[in-house]
Design a protein around this nucleic acid. Structure first.
Lengths: 134, 134
DNA sequence: CCTTGACCTGGAGCCCACTTCAGGTGAAAT
DNA sequence: ATTTCACCTGAAGTGGGCTCCAGGTCAAGG
């Protein structure tokens, strides 16, 4: 397992499907990853970890193999992906806020429960506003 | 398809696996989702969209069904998940920065290419620092 | 009265991204 | 010399999360 952070199996898989160009071998037929390979794998990691599907990484890989005339296309592809990442970030932040509100709600319920109602406060606490708990 | 944002098939699937409690039916046997169901589905959407695996949502669902004594456990679960979301956000931002650096790098290459070398500047442009392109 | 259409069921199928398997090779350690 | 070990190959299997199918029921519309 290389320190690309991918398992050897995954690397073989990537090579098979063409996400990694044919990797060089030593005398015994074992893979020798070059710095170039490692650089490319860094990119792959980035794209994969930001949710790009393999099919699109393959498109990108192919553009890359076709030389510098495809740089504008690669920029376009990456910019589109950047937008997706931006959207992911926005969505994630939003959902995180909701989760935190839920936690806060649960905390309130616990606090209310652990407060032995300060005498003379007859119970209108049940079904408090916005208490859609589940 | 309800406006829970899930497909009807997905809702049936969730009910089958117990992520959704047995949904009420009308006379004809058709599902009638209550506001409670919709509220819960909102939660499910939140958790799912932040990457919680179904198995853990099932744990959460079960806690929820067990009543208020499980609220501390639910808080714990959600807090752990919140940490995961935080980690996701951090990772995503980091990778996004890398993608943007790549875009910037490509832009530089294009700019350099489109600049018809201002006479007398003999070419040391090739293999510029940090140019691990691929 | 019949067609259309939306839903029902259990079960099979699908897509993605790996992961595991069976069988084999070659260098290194005891 | 033989065991061990890390790698090799092509092919099959896995797990997660849906999605689709065949066959059936009901209610409403023409």
């Amino acid at each position: 397992m290389e320190e690309s952070g991918f398992s050897l199996d995954t690397l073989r898989y990537y090579e098979r499907i063409g996400l990694l160009p044919p990797v060089e071998r030593n005398a015994a037929g074992q893979r020798r990853f070059t710095d170039d390979d490692l650089g490319w794998l860094g990119m792959v990691r980035c794209l994969r970890d930001t949710g790009m599907p393999i099919a699109e990484m393959l498109r990108f890989a192919e553009l890359t193999r076709q030389g510098d005339e495809t740089i504008p296309a690669r920029v376009t592809l990456l910019e589109e992906h950047d937008l997706q990442v931006e959207a992911q970030l926005a969505s994630l932040r939003e959902k995180q806020a909701a989760i935190r509100r839920k936690i806060a709600y649960y905390r309130d319920v616990l606090a209310a429960r652990d407060t032995p109602d300060p005498a003379g406060c007859d119970d209108l606490a049940e079904s408090a506003a916005g208490a859609r708990s589940r």
